[in-house]
Structure formats: C-alpha cells, structure tokens
Write a protein that binds this DNA or RNA. Sequence first.
RNA 1: CGGGGCGUAGCGCAGCUUGGUAGCGCGCUUGCUUUGGGAGCAAGAUGCCGCAGGUUCAAAUCCUGUCGCCCCGACCA
Length: 498
Amino acid sequence: MSLSSIIHWSLTSERKLNNMANDKKTVEAITPINEDFGRWYTDIVKNAELIDYSAVKGCVILRPYGYAIWENIQKIMDGMFKDTGHENVYMPIFIPESLLQKEKDHVEGFAPEVAWVTLGGSEELTERLCVRPTSETLFCDHFAHIIQSYRDLPKLYNQWCSVVRWEKTTRPFLRSREFLWQEGHTMHETREQAEQETQRMLEVYRNFCEKYLKMPVISGRKTDKEKFAGAVATYTIEAMMHDGKSLQSGTSHFFGDGFARAFDIKFTARDNTLQYPFQTSWGVSTRIIGAIIMTHGDDSGLILPPAIAPIQVVVVPVAQHKPGVLEAASSLRDRLKAAGLRVLLDDSDQSPGWKFAQHEMRGVPLRIEIGPRDIEAGQCVAVRRDNAEKTVVALSELEVRVPELLSTLEDGLYERALSNRESRTYACKNFKELESAVKSGPGFYKTMWCGDEACELKLKEQLDISSRCMPFEQENLSDVCPVCGRPAKHMVVWGSAY
RNA sequence: CGGGGCGUAGCGCAGCUUGGUAGCGCGCUUGCUUUGGGAGCAAGAUGCCGCAGGUUCAAAUCCUGUCGCCCCGACCA
C-alpha cells in the first residue's frame, strides 16, 4: 500500500466515523476549517447551496443563493464603474482564429487553454472560432472601427459576461472552465492617461474589497514573469486566505500601444499627426466569491459581509405555532425591510435549532430570534454570525440597533481578516530568514529583490514560493537581494497562490 | 500528463473476499405531538448496483474494456 493510499484510507475512514458520530445531528456536517481547508471549502460551497456541479467538468451551476451574491457584487461594482465614467457594452462570445492571433504574446499565453468551435451544424467552418478566454482582441477590432480622432478618446468600456478557459485542474469559483466576470477595456490619447486609468481601476477594486467585502488586500505590480499575456505592466490586488495562501482577486493591465499597433488602431492627434492610442484592461471574476468564502468562513460555514449578503438579517420565530409569534416576527421583517435591509422571515416548519444552524451555514450576518417571552418583554434577541454574541434589542429601537450591529460586525470581519494576515506576514532581510519563515507556514514573505527573473525562479525551485506582487507601499528591508546578493531594487511579497 | 482511490435510492455508505429475493442512516411524503441550538412517534415512496462486453443455470459480487468523479504530484494568463 502506497503512502498516499494509506493517507486516503485513513482520511476516508475518519470521515466515516465523523459522519456516523454526526448522523443523529445532521448529514450536513462540514469538515473543520483547520483540519482540511480544501475539503472545508468544497463542503461550504455545496452545503451553503452556492453551487451544484454540472454535467461538464469545471463548469458549475450557480444556484440562486450563489448567484444572488454575484448580483450584489455586480450592482455595487457596476455603480463604481459608472461613477468613473465607464459604459457597458456586449461583445460576441466567439473570436475568429485570425483575430486572436494578431498579438503574438497574447495568443501564446492563451492558446493552451482555449476552446474551439469547428462545426456549424454538420458543416466544417472555414475558419475555426475560439470561445473567448478574454476579449482584448474583440475590443481592439471594434476600436479600430470607431476611433478616428483624439475627439473619440478616451473610450471607457466595460462588459459583464462569461469567458471560457479550458483548465485542467478546476475548483468551484477559484478556477473553473467557464466563469462570470467583468472586463473593462479602455483606450486613451496618451500613455500617461492610460497608466492613470490602470491605477485608478485597481484602486476601485481595492476600495471595493476593503469597504464592501471587508477583505484587506495588498495592491501592487506583478513581476514580468507573472504579468498578463501581452501587457506592458500588470497590477494586482492580493488577498490572504484563512490558510495563509494568496488569492489574486483583481487585476488591471497597462498595454501601452502594443495591441493598437497589432490591430492598426490609429487616430488623428491634436497636432494632425497619426498616433496609436494607449490601452488598458481590468477584470474581477466570480473568483472573488471564493475569496470571500476563504477569508471570512469558519467551522459553522460561510460568513458573508453584509454589503453583498443576499439575506442580511434572518428572523427566526420561536414556538411559531403559538398565537402572536408569527405576527410579531413578520412585523419585525416588515420594519427591517422598510429600513432598507434584505430580510428573510424563516417560517418554515423546521425546528428553531435547525434554522439557526442552516442560516449560519449560509453565512447570514445577523439572526433575530423572537418568541413568546420576547414578545411579552417587548424585545427580540439579535445574534451576530461572526462571534455568536447575543444582544437583547428593545423592539422600539429595532431600526437603530440592527444597522449598528451590522456595522460593528463589518468592522469585526475586517479586523479578523487583517490580523490573520498580519500574523502570517514575515519581513525577511536575508535568505536564512526567508527560509525559516517559509518553514513556519504559508503566508506573505516580504523581501527585497534585485529584479532578475533568475532569482524569482530560484525561489520557486528552492522554497516553492512565487512572487505575488511588488506592493506600492515599499519598505526598505535591506540593501541586497536575498538570493543573489546584488543591489535590491524592489520589495516583493512572496507566497503560494490559489 | 504520472501515481492512488471511488462509482449501489436525493445525500453518506454497507453488501463484493466465498455468485443465489437490493440493505442501513439521513433526507423526502402523510398524520399526530413538539418548538429558546440540528425534535419524537407511526405509516409510506424512491434503485438500468456508472456503461459495454464476457464467464455462469444464475452477476452489485468474478473477468475484460470503457466512461466519470475525487485525492496527491506536475502544469497553470
């Protein structure tokens, strides 16, 4: 028996025992978060009814609760894009092969994971069509038609759509073959304007993650090795997950005029000369839902930040068959709804305990219990999802206290995520320190770096870590690269990534 | 792509070694009683045993092939 089969055997039998022990209680017990993070994650996405697996490997069904999270994310982000002057468009799902191949680096980067359509009905197509893995080429083809003059610039476009990348290893939300996202594509008169746009949209992403998702991120630049195929520079926001691994949560690319040249996009400039415009693109995908799960979740399941939670408050009536209870509960619901909250009154005929567990699994930020005793006392009981803290709320103060509780919960989520990141972040002056930091567990390892890709590759080989980003907020940890000893140019955050 | 494991009711699994009427728990349906942390009793319904061949009087069980999923590793804009 090989080592891995022994490990597998002991895991499955352990699970069997767990299941047997839990049978009385529930069939939906999830793996403890610190026992097997990967399994915990899969348990969550299925048990919280975010997704179901489909007939095609790597393509998941977003169930109503999971899709509602995406809709809330969309609503907020779309507003932020509109506020920064962007317009939504929709491009076709297919890209002719000749179009995809116009930019050399781009096609090389994406070719291995592109899905092709070769037949229309039973007829072989004269040119095969790729199912878009990203839409730079389509936008460029279109921009070439509509940009003539500096007066046509800037073009600030965004589209909400799905893209397909034929991945070998897949995980719900984190890496699937088809996923939903938004991709912004912009064209500018000058290099500076495009560079500014790249940074501006990264800042929109950072703001969105920190303000609404309560997820601290590090923003910075990718090394050349890690940058987007065809980009001059790629910027990223990196978030640390519960287990210390890094998740690239949004990217913003500066393309220079490379694509413009490849696609022959030209405009007449103010000085009556023909110029190539400068381009950006930026994207956030449903992967961000994976980030939310892995940042905030715990042993009881999901914890959703209120801003994107499909249900912000669940009202659970206790002894709901008794006269007056359901009426009191639905009046609570109506008042909270009127106060602008997303509320569910769970009047299903499950026991209260079952409802508690169920809504905890689904990450509802705040639960309100109301039973005969409360009604008599003119109160209800609010329970925070993140720390199970119970607060007695006078019914007369409902509209004031509930938003307060949600807001302190938001602060709590952010603080907890931040302190997890801080406790797993290591500043390393030399190779020895880096090595021992890596040994002490997954995390962010900050070091200086000479800028040479050879050193980057060496760290991958020797310590199995890759560069996550070169943060905008640089620190001076030492004067030399810990790998080669040459003068250090940048501070880099290293880690292992999802 | 390499190594390992698993496909039996909606879910989790037993049965396979040694072939002989398809099982258990949860869930589901109906009724009654319950309700402040995953309720109880009673009566029900649900299976091309992944698929295709083969051996046999007889296959969930043995043999061959095949497809799918999971884990570990490699790869991964």
